[in-house]
Every structure is written in structure tokens, then in C-alpha cells.
Amino acid sequence: MKFVRGHAEARWLPSRHNFALFRLYAYLRLRNAKRETRDVILGIDRHQSNAEAWIVAVWTTITGACCIAGTLFASWPVAIALTVAVPLSMLGIQTALVTSGVTAAPLWNALTRLRTPGVKVNSIVTMSAIAALCAYSATRPTWVRFAGLQFFTLLALNALAAVVVCLLRGPISQLETSVGGVPSGQ
């Protein structure tokens, strides 16, 4: 069990974040954070960040909803189309997740024998499904192309952040260790 006890500023440990953009932001916050001695126990896991989980969940749901509204319900008034598309987007993500969980993840592990965690395989598969939807939307001549384009813009920004995080991995590990955390990647 990995945790930090007594350091509230450890909530900004990059190793508590998953996507590179959030890791980079967490690093910048932690670098400028003051020591906060409080009675807390903070778990260390790359999926621990509350804000990250919510932001990405809302972003993917709304992106999916825009793509559905702008393609399947293109002839409907936008407000009605979006209202119907939000629950459909949520159900779509859930369906993709279950389908990937029972097919892609076991198949990947059977073929590669890498024992990759299901969470990782399903994250890639589900995100790829959204990317495919966005790629199609980006080719449409209507407003929905912006929904597709913003997805790829953020994806590109995240890739850029990943390069920066990789270059900074030494200072990041040092800073994480100094607040009692576990260096990223461990």
C-alpha cells in the first residue's frame, strides 16, 4: 500500500495523475506548494486525482455527445439533439468499455502474455473509439467538425506535455521523493 501521511501538499504529486497534461500541471503546483502539515493520508496511484477523473469524464462525454448530435441527429434542433445525445454518449462509453473488457483485454493478454492491466487496454480501446468518432466528425462540413478538431488538439497538447514530462523526469522524481512520495513510474 503506497501512501503519504501528514503532507497535505502531496495531493499534487505527479504520480497521483494519469494524463501528461495533468502530471505537468501537478508538477508545477507541487514545485510552488508550501509545506502543509495536516492529519491526512494520501494514497498514491496514477488514477487518484479527483479533478482529473471528472474533467476527462465530462470532456469525453460531451465530445461524444457533440459527435452523436452532429451526425446521427444532424437534422434536429441542436439543443434537443444534444439533450438526447448526452445519455447516449454515456451509454456508448459504457458499452465500449464492457465490450473491450470482455474481448480486447483478454485477447491482448493472451496474444502478448504481457499481463497488461485491463484498465490500460480498455482505456486505449475506448479512447480510440472516441478518436474514430471524432475523426469522422472532423470531416463533416457542419459545426460538429469543431468537436472533432478540439479532441485532436487536446490530444496533441497532451502528447507535447508527455515529451516535457519525460524530459523533466529527473527533477519530478526528486521533488516527489522530497515530500515522501513514490517517484513517478514506480
Partner: peptide, 17 residues
């Protein structure tokens, strides 16, 4: 199955459903 397979960014969606 859900705990071992759901990525963090799908958790709120799965929980709401």
C-alpha cells in the same frame, strides 16, 4: 470486473448509470 477494467475517466459515467 468493473473495478479491474474501468479507466479512471470512465468511473463517473459508469457510477451514474
Amino acid at each position: 470486473f468493473g473495478v479491474l477494467n474501468a479507466p479512471l475517466w470512465t468511473e463517473p459515467i459508469v457510477m451514474a448509470i
